[in-house]
């Protein structure tokens, strides 16, 4: 069984039933998950920040890092497995985007990430069917490609499905 481990700003996809696609300890980062039932392909991007305009060079080198560059990059990656280029027919799920306990807005990067991602998905005519976003704990997330099943974990909590 293969494990495709994605770090911050990485994205990847697989259609090999033996694979898991996994990312560790999402804090304010958001994991964007695309499942394509037709080709049985699963993809994920580990998005750190909402907007690539702060550093174009970084966006060129790691498009998965920013919401606005991650989604086109992940779609292009999935197209290599025969998925629709604009994401038609794909199931979208989102998780992560935690926030520290804060009474003012500046540190709500998790919230801003989720919002930016939803906006871009909307521009593709896509929307999430399931999400586990926000709150104040970190999440590790794993997709099993064979079942298209998403498992989340966080220390001190029983694992749960999305």
């Amino acid at each position: 069984m293969g494990q495709i481990i994605l770090g911050v700003g990485d994205y990847g996809a697989s259609n090999s039933p033996a694979d898991d696609v996994k990312t560790f300890a999402l804090g304010s980062c958001v994991s964007v998950i695309f499942l394509d039932p037709k080709t049985r392909t699963a993809g994920m991007a580990h998005v750190a920040l909402p907007d690539s305009s702060i550093n174009k060079a970084k966006a060129g080198e790691k498009p998965g890092y920013f919401a606005d560059t991650a989604i086109p990059a992940l779609l292009a990656q999935m197209a290599k497995f025969g998925c629709d280029k604009r994401g038609k027919g794909m199931v979208v799920k989102l998780c992560g985007g935690a926030n520290v306990m804060d009474s003012n807005d500046t540190f709500q990067i998790g919230k801003r990430n989720a919002l930016a991602i939803k906006k871009i998905l909307w521009s593709y005519g896509m929307g999430a069917v399931a999400e586990d976003l926000g709150k104040n704990f970190s999440r590790t997330v794993s997709i099993s490609v064979s079942a298209g099943q998403i498992t989340l974990s966080s220390p001190g909590k029983p694992n749960w499905q999305l």
Binding site: G27, C29, A48, N99, V100, M101, F107, F137, P155
Partner: peptide, 17 residues
């Protein structure tokens, strides 16, 4: 550091700002 995914396990993000 915690927001970036580098906490120390169970306490990560579980503090007040």
């Amino acid at each position: 550091a915690m927001m970036g995914g580098f906490g120390t396990g169970s306490d990560s993000m579980r503090y007040k700002l």
